[in-house]
């Protein structure tokens, strides 16, 4: 695909909104895959190496969520960089600018 959007004017601080919106992906995907309508489709009488397929499915989705969170966290944490350290010197509090 030619990916026309790649050619748009580059916006230097890879827009915060896009990073932030990524944080929505995991809970929503997790909810869809683990909740009744869709998850029901994976409750089948099948075994993978002896283990019932449903159990494998649940743990695989779970592991994928964890991996996804581990991948997304660095960029999100960088966004949340405002240092609200508890025991930071109090006099400096006013200079901790908000995003």
């Amino acid at each position: 695909m030619s990916a026309w959007w790649r050619h748009r004017r580059p916006r230097p601080p890879l827009d915060h909104r896009r990073i932030r919106d990524r944080a929505l992906i995991l809970p929503i995907v997790g909810l869809l895959l683990l909740m009744p309508p869709i998850a029901g489709a994976f409750q089948i009488d099948l075994r993978l190496a002896g283990v019932p397929f449903t159990a494998v499915y649940l743990f695989v989705v779970w592991a994928a969520l964890i991996a996804g969170a581990a991948v997304l966290t660095p960029s999100l944490s960088a966004l949340a960089e405002e240092p609200w350290r508890v025991d930071a010197p109090r006099a400096g509090e006013g200079s901790d600018a908000e995003v």
Binding site: A23, P27, L31, L34, L58
Partner: peptide
Amino acid sequence: LEFITIYLGPTLVFVGWWWLLR
């Protein structure tokens, strides 16, 4: 497998930490 639900809920909340927990 029903016991897993007790741990799936917190998982969903934590992977979506940005929106509520933060």
